[in-house]
C-alpha cells in the first residue's frame, strides 16, 4: 500500500533571478513499512525532497499525495494539523525543546493532539523504553549526549503515531557507536511497528542498512535500488 506518492515533482528556487532547479520531475512511491534512504551529493535535492514530502515546503509543480491527500493543497492550520497527525520528523540537530525533559518532549506532540493523559503516559514510557532511555526520562536535552538526544527525537517523532517518519541526516552529528545504536532502534521500530522511515543521508553505515536506496543527482532520481541491489551497487 502506497503511503507517499510524488508525481512529477519540481522545485525551482529564485525563479525570477538565477533559477536553481532543486528537483526536476521526481516520481517516487513509498510503500508502508519501507526503510528508505535518499542519498546523493550535496545540492542534489535530498533535503528539498524531504521538505516537500513533509509539507514544510511547496513544490513549484507536481504533487505529493499522502494516503490520498494532496498536501500541497493544504494551507495554514490544516497543513499544520496534517503534519501533527501524519508525519514524524527527526532533525539533524535533534531540535528538542530545551526547557522540557525527555519525557515532556516526547509527550508534547501528544498534548498537541489532545490525547488523554493515560494514553500519553503509557506511550511515553513505551517509546523511551524502546529507544533505551527509560532511565533518562527527567533529563533535559542539555543533560543528554547527542546520541541520546537523537533517540529522544526519534521517540518524539513516533509519539504522534504518524504514517511515516522523515529524518534529515539523522546520524550526521553522531559518533559511530551512537549512529549504530540509533539505526538499530529505527530498524527495530520499523520492523516491530511497521513504521515507514524515509531519511536523507551521506552516511555509508545508514545506506548499508537501508532496504531501499534512492539516489538523487541534479534533482533527478538517478538510481532506485532495493535491499539486495544495494549491497551489490554500494
Amino acid at each position: 500500500m502506497k503511503v507517499i506518492e510524488t508525481r512529477n515533482l519540481s522545485k525551482i528556487y529564485n525563479p525570477d533571478k538565477v533559477p536553481v532547479h532543486a528537483l526536476n520531475g521526481v516520481n517516487l512511491a513509498i510503500e508502508r513499512g519501507e526503510f528508505t534512504a535518499i542519498v546523493g551529493p550535496s545540492g542534489s535535492g535530498k533535503t528539498t525532497l524531504l521538505n516537500i514530502i513533509g509539507g514544510l515546503d511547496n513544490p513549484t509543480s507536481g504533487s505529493v499525495v499522502v494516503e490520498g491527500t494532496e498536501i500541497a493543497k493544504l494551507e495554514g492550520n490544516a497543513l499544520i494539523n496534517f503534519r501533527l497527525h501524519n508525519i514524524g520528523f527527526v532533525f539533524q540537530a535533534y531540535n528538542l525543546i530545551p526547557v522540557l525533559t525527555a519525557k515532556e518532549n516526547v509527550e508534547f506532540v501528544m498534548l498537541l493532539q489532545t490525547r488523554p493523559k493515560g494514553e500519553r503516559e503509557a506511550r511515553v514510557i513505551a517509546l523511551l523504553e524502546a529507544v533505551g532511555l527509560s532511565d533518562k526520562t527527567d533529563k533535559r536535552p542539555s543533560e543528554l549526549s547527542g546520541g541520546q538526544q537523537q533517540r529522544v527525537a526519534v521517540a518524539r517523532a513516533l509519539a504522534s503515531k504518524p504514517k511515516f517518519v522523515l529524518a534529515d541526516e539523522p546520524t550526521a552529528n553522531l559518533d559511530s557507536i551512537s549512529a549504530e545504536n540509533l539505526l538499530d532502534i529505527m530498524l527495530k521500530l520499523n520492523q516491530e511497528e511497521n513504521m515507514t522511515f524515509i531519511f536523507s543521508t551521506h552516511d555509508a553505515r545508514v545506506i548499508r542498512r537501508a532496504r531501499r536506496v534512492v539516489t538523487l543527482e541534479d534533482g533527478r532520481i538517478k538510481k532506485d535500488l532495493v535491499q539486495n541491489e544495494v549491497s551489490i551497487n554500494f
Partner: peptide
C-alpha cells in the same frame, strides 16, 4: 529556530 521546529512538529501559530 525553535519556533520553526514547533511549527514543523505540529504546534499551531
Amino acid at each position: 529556530l525553535e519556533f520553526r521546529v514547533l511549527l514543523a512538529i505540529g504546534m499551531q501559530k
